[in-house]
């Protein structure tokens, strides 16, 4: 039973990161109807910036802040300089451009930083402390939950309580109508990319230290899990992204813990297939057609 509790908390901690990353994918999908396959590479670039800033200043938190700001600016740059010019007549166009961005970003990072794995520090210890005699979660896990929880709350407040959030939602669902109502749809799209890239950077900062280390392709496997989480929850649903992230995290943890780590990727793919067959729009998809 101790093992079950440990795996549960471990899965929730991992799942929180996948949730944040899936949230980033959902933000862009809702705004631009593009699955941003470059999200992982963009997040790694932000983590490299944090690595450099922390290395130069000795402060993890300065590096952390730099990663988020860099992610925000990178999102703006990618939208304004690249994605805005993609012909959206075919959904494949955006995918191909995003994959091109992955190759360019990883190539540039490899040239600047090299292709070896680099250790990344964490601000808190990662050894689990006991709760009632059971090793459950570490201080770092608590930090992960707090960071992802703060992002979820902040985004919820943004979308439900602010004028900017209302504009963003309207622009995503009905761009022409929104323009007629005075909403700067292009600006909202840029804001969506910026927020998504910042959230993706946060996810990168949280997950890279728990994996093999920093490498230009460090987020590739994470991307697969997060993409699965987003699809499982429903690409249109922020709540679905969070739920999907937690489901994928728990699944990976249980399968790795009870059946072995080599089986885990297959379990994720199996989950994806089952959801796509049973509910293609994802668990939280709306059953109605989009009319506007």
């Amino acid at each position: 039973m101790d093992r079950f509790f440990y795996l549960t908390f471990d899965g929730l901690s991992r799942g929180a990161v996948y949730a944040a990353f899936a949230l980033a994918l959902v933000l862009i999908w809702r705004a631009a109807r593009i699955v941003n396959f470059a999200q992982g590479a963009m997040a790694v670039a932000a983590v490299y910036v944090a690595y450099s800033v922390t290395g130069a200043t000795g402060s993890y938190w300065l590096g952390f802040a730099a990663a988020l700001v860099f992610g925000l600016l990178l999102g703006i740059a990618v939208e304004k300089a690249v994605m805005r010019f993609v012909d959206h007549s075919s959904p494949l166009n955006g995918v191909v451009v995003a994959l091109g961005l992955v190759l360019i970003t990883q190539g540039v990072l490899g040239m600047v930083y090299g292709n070896e794995y680099r250790p990344v520090t964490t601000p808190f210890r990662r050894d689990a402390f006991d709760v009632g005699g059971i090793a459950l979660l570490s201080r770092y896990d608590v930090f992960v939950f707090a960071a992802v929880g703060a992002v979820v709350v902040a985004l919820t407040l943004l979308f439900t309580r602010t004028a900017a959030g209302l504009r963003m939602r309207a622009a995503a669902f009905a761009p022409d109508v929104s323009r007629l109502l005075g909403v700067p749809v292009g600006g909202m799209l840029t804001l969506g990319w910026a927020l998504a890239a910042a959230v993706g950077s946060l996810a990168g900062m949280l997950v890279v230290p728990t994996e093999l280390g920093l490498h230009p392709t460090a987020m590739d496997v994470v991307f697969v899990s997060a993409f699965t989480a987003a699809v499982v929850g429903g690409l249109d649903s922020p709540i679905g992204a969070v739920t999907g992230g937690l489901i994928v995290g728990l699944l990976l943890s249980y399968v790795s813990g009870y059946l072995g780590a080599t089986v885990a990727p297959m379990a994720v793919l199996l989950l994806l297939v089952v959801v796509l067959l049973g509910r293609p729009g994802g668990l939280f998809s709306s059953s109605k057609a989009r009319l506007a």
């Binding site: 209302l166 504009r167 939602r169 669902f173 022409d176 109508v177 007629l180 109502l181 909403v183 506007a292």
Partner: peptide, 25 residues
């Protein structure tokens, strides 16, 4: 003000949100 064919209601937003959207500018 342009009310387009098909009414242009943002169906994912509530009535109140749709109306407030009309005055955000």
């Amino acid at each position: 003000a342009h009310v387009p064919e098909g009414r242009g209601v943002v169906t994912e937003l509530t009535v109140d949100e749709n109306l407030r959207l009309g005055g955000l500018w």
